[in-house]
Write a protein that binds this DNA or RNA. Structure first.
Lengths: 228, 228
DNA sequence: AGGGAAGTCTTACGGGCGTTCGAATTTGGC
DNA sequence: GCCAAATTCGAACGCCCGTAAGACTTCCCT
């Protein structure tokens, strides 16, 4: 009866699938996409199952049929997007390792951490809304999501390890704190924060230029890591 | 009938009032304190009026009688705590101006911005829960709250102006971005993020030592501002 | 062509929510 | 000590929510 067990959503990205996926008209994907968008824009609690199914143009019962519950839907979106983002980060870290005989400098480790999410932030990127979803889910998430965040920790550890060996002169706790600060900079990139920044700067800042933003953020974080 | 107009909550801190306030047994204050705590711990949407009044030991109707609505209660807590925090920041910035003939260096401006909230973060500080409330409200807030955040912008401008004149060699947008980064570091100090950091570092980091945390954060941000 | 599984639709149920109302009670000025 | 205003209280209303049940339709395999 209920296909809440996975293996559905079949043709959605074989692995590192690029774009053109998710265009299948299957109801499950329509729900997935609509829910991700609405959650990202308005928050989990402010979006009802009726909102989602109406936006997706499908029947009310679809969410419970295909995902089991509203919570499970949120969880699956979060799980899939997190895995996708972390895959890109891991690949960049791996490449940095290859380039520097397993001991990449701080800048390259930070680049591997920050570049994928900031790429997603580009106005024309297909994952722009996914990044907003992830940022929001991180702070508003349910209990289920904290379980995924523990997996996320084991992923993060690869970056903290790389930073530790790039700066063996620093105490480990100092490195952990600086990583924490860097992640704070990253997770602050919500639409609402950009709005406030735009008001403050009277429109001179534009988050649309994500290449410039990445360069600025990398320079800031690298300088923060370089002290003492 | 309804005393939702201010001027109640009378004896709560004359101005820079220290502690020992808020111990009055008035129902309105009991609701205020209980709501702030519950909102900070569980989020606005996850706390019901019944939760608040039960925790405060008062009648269910108290919230609507004293504040008008649940939304208005949230708004008043946010407004009061924001004003309180910004007052401390403004005072520190003013003192820094006095010490440096109106041109304080970057470090002192950042200290004025970061020190008050990080002081509130201390385990035994009476405003510890208020800071968690503010951080949470900033990202989960209702539409009313964004109006307050615009006032907050005009307050922030004093700091951005100080930074601009401390670093006239930088382009204004660069300064705005670095301020944005710094605020991201600050707003990332939620309990949940500390938990993740503790897991990652296997318990070697402790957010209890807020003096050390402030020193680390200031050093990181100052280094980020010092480049080029 | 048939039949069973998979998916979709309509409908409704039970529950928690914010809010309100009117009565009961307390408070404070004279 | 009295009366009016302020506050507290118990109870209920109406709404929207997530979810489930059951009938119906579509699709595919033989």
């Amino acid at each position: 009866m209920s296909p809440t067990t996975d293996a559905a959503v079949s043709p959605l990205m074989a692995d590192g699938g690029a774009d053109a996926a998710e265009t299948e008209a299957a109801t499950k994907n329509l729900v997935f996409i609509a829910a991700e968008r609405l959650f990202a824009l308005h928050g989990f609690q402010n979006v009802s199952v009726r909102d989602i199914t109406a936006a997706a143009g499908v029947n009310l019962a679809s969410v419970n049929y295909h995902f089991g519950s509203k919570d499970a839907l949120l969880f699956e979106i979060f799980r899939r997007r997190t895995a996708e983002l972390n895959r890109e980060r891991a690949r960049m870290l791996h490449e940095a390792n290859d380039r520097h005989q397993g001991k990449p400098p701080v800048r390259e480790v930070l680049a591997a951490l920050l570049t994928p999410p900031l790429r997603w932030l580009a106005p024309d990127h297909e994952r722009r809304i996914s990044l907003q979803f992830l940022i929001r889910a991180r702070s508003e998430g349910t209990d289920d999501i904290r379980q995924v965040l523990k997996t996320d920790v084991s992923h993060l550890r690869r970056f903290s390890d790389a930073l530790l060996s790039a700066r063996p002169d620093l105490s480990p706790e100092e490195v952990y704190w600086r990583l924490h600060f860097t992640l704070g900079m990253l997770h602050n990139n919500r639409f609402a924060e950009f709005d406030r920044l735009n008001v403050l700067s009277e429109g001179t800042t534009s988050e649309a230029d994500v290449v410039a933003l990445l360069a600025r953020m990398l320079a800031f974080a690298e300088a923060g890591f370089a002290t003492r």
